[in-house]
Amino acid sequence: MELLTGSVRHYSWGSRELIATLRGEAVPTQRPEAEVWFGAHPAGSALIGEQPLVDIIAADPESQLGADVRARFGDRLPFLLKLLAAAEPLSLQAHPSLEQAREGFAREDAEGIAIGADQRNYKDDNHKPELIVALTEFEAMAGFRPLAKTLELLHLLNCAELERYLSMLGGEGSREEDDLRALFTTWITIPTMAREQLISEILVAINAALSRKLEPWQTEALENIVQLHERYPFDVGVLGALLLNKFTLQPGEAIFLDAGQLHAYVNGLGVEIMANSDNVLRGGLTPKHVDVPELVRILKFSSLESPQVEADKVAGWSRYATPVDEFQLRSATNTESFLVDAHGPAILLVVAGKVEAKCGDATVVLSPGDAAWIAAQDPEVTATPLGGQATVFLAEVG
């Protein structure tokens, strides 16, 4: 077991307060702190001392990952753990399936697009299913809202320009997936002047609707559109967001997003775990590269009633079950010593209180925002809260 130093990512949407406050550091920070990567991705590996974890694993994959993980996933850590802190909305985005990632990565390599190029979509050949657990109140847009609810929301706006587009839906024998595909692809590709006119009229209608008594989910969804437009005026992502579920998670609540599910995190601090990938296809709400045809190609247009994941209580841990093999995530809050029963390579992350972790002859003291790497060869770990209650997350292979 070793102290693991995360790789900080200073994206423009990041918070200058959330991660620093978690760590007990001065705020605001000089630069936004959007993410801290605790993992072994080549684009931003965590460190043990001065050495990247990705290099340590490459030098001795058997002791670091274990035979079972190597047999299933090769010689790379299959998951990436992060702290994510959003002060502004992230891009409207989705991630490819494993097959799509392999094909896209090979295609862009063959086209000679450099890995670090702005127009590169596929940074690696892996998929990126992801789970995020809120540490603060956390706002997110996640998955296409069931079409019936979307039509209910949009019809109440009584917007003539909007109704022109809605009239194309619901033909004889039409399927929800086909209608969502038709509406989204139409909106994301309409000419700039038409898009600006449509958004202008929608905003007038939204402001009128917000003066009336609405259901809470309707108010939240419409207020979100107004706020997105203030940040990204007339952006195509404002239209796309009209079709998405909008959630406000409370601490400890979680959502899971699989390949092809459109989403954008809006605000808040969370612990995120995903397959070890940095592949993102964007469709708006960003100054970064947007590739609409590729995004549409990998999207799933089936609706998502709710992406929320209920935690199971297992032996003192809250386990967030997902249908993927690359990772699993558990959390525990304790005042007394407890066993960290990691199986194979794992990362222990502290988010509240202070913890003394012991593993054989090794001892590390972890404060909020600190993490420890537990190699497959390591003996069991015991964690002891120091001075009161502590909360930890444990990331492992699924």
Rank of each mutant, 00 (worst) to 15 (best):
H41Q: 03
A264R: 07
A321M: 13
V133Q: 09
A46V: 00
P96F: 05
T335H: 11
K288C: 00
N158Y: 04
S63V: 02
D370G: 06
T189W: 07
E272P: 01
I56M: 15
E310I: 07
L3A: 09
L135C: 03
E108L: 08
E161P: 03
H343S: 15
E35Q: 09
L214Q: 10
E294Q: 13
E196Y: 06
W317S: 06
R330C: 06
H289G: 01
A20W: 06
G6K: 08
G268F: 08
G104R: 09
V365M: 13
R70P: 01
V266P: 01
Q51F: 03
D68T: 14
L257Q: 10
T248K: 15
G24P: 03
D125A: 15
L210W: 02
P323C: 08
E108T: 01
M168F: 11
P42C: 05
R164V: 04
P287T: 10
D258E: 15
L65A: 10
I56V: 12
A20E: 06
I347Y: 03
A87W: 03
E130M: 02
A264T: 06
E25P: 02
E88K: 14
L269T: 02
L80T: 00
T335Q: 14
L281A: 03
M274Q: 14
H343T: 14
A208P: 02
P345R: 06
L366K: 07
H155I: 01
L257S: 05
